[in-house]
Design a protein around this nucleic acid. Sequence first.
DNA 1: TTAAATAGTAACTATAATGGTTACAAATAG
DNA 2: CTATTTGTAACCATTATAGTTACTATTTAA
Lengths: 148, 148
Amino acid sequence: MYSTKFSVSLHILSLIALKEEKSITSDYIAGSINTNPVLVRRLMSLLKKSGLIVAQTKIGATGLAKPANEISMKEIFIAVEGDAPIFKIHEDTNQNCPVGARIGSVVTHVNHQMKEKFNEELDSIYLIDILMDLDEQTNINDHTEVMK
Amino acid sequence: MYSTKFSVSLHILSLIALKEEKSITSDYIAGSINTNPVLVRRLMSLLKKSGLIVAQTKIGATGLAKPANEISMKEIFIAVEGDAPIFKIHEDTNQNCPVGARIGSVVTHVNHQMKEKFNEELDSIYLIDILMDLDEQTNINDHTEVMK
DNA sequence: TTAAATAGTAACTATAATGGTTACAAATAG
DNA sequence: CTATTTGTAACCATTATAGTTACTATTTAA
């Protein structure tokens, strides 16, 4: 199972996208997630390096680096989890066994196939969809007061 | 990234499916993988519990529990990696923040969506495909001697 | 110009999962 | 019976994650 990095990043990006002030700090974001600001800064640093958000010292994140309908889950996932294959492969199999000698390339092929489909799916969902889902929930449920 | 359990399981299942003797032991399989027999037995135990192979004390695995064209990657994956969601979600978000209170169900939805596609893809590949790939490789490359 | 705030990062800790190993009881073929 | 093999328990080393403290660099704004 992949770590919480991806889902926490969606939380961070949503807060930045929906903020009403002109900027938002890692301290504030950490307060919404209920975690440590350093953890938030680490993820924000990755999101910034991947060109998804704009942030600067002293004032915090000023916004998304591009519109929410141009930021796909794939970009976000790769930014924080990397672009590694889906599963690990045991190297160093016995080359004297016909199966041991050939299984590597066969499972690597399956691995690539899985990864391709996985990325396709990630690439079919955009940050705007997340924001719309959040908004829908807001209308359905009673309106919670803005965090203080 | 998922562990080597899935790819090692494909190795194990291939050996069992292609064996020429009437049974095959965890010791022999471990020799082809180049790992420890206990690790192989642990995976074989899971594959047996999920109804994919038949094995018994003293003689080892006698074969697949059903034809290779009826064993999907999904069954194998779930047998050894479980059916957990794709990524972890940070619980305990701040319920006083409108985003913190609602992001959980939104990312859970994305998680399910990803998992569903992932399973669909796993369910489109069968053990017979792996065996055919192995066979194809055997015909292309020079024939390695059977492991002794 | 200075002071306060904040990002960015290094370093450390605790926890959990993985891959590997030793050891041994239970089962069973022969 | 006995030798073999599965099925587990228990342990260890390594790695990744999540969280934390502490510090430097930057930069707004007074």
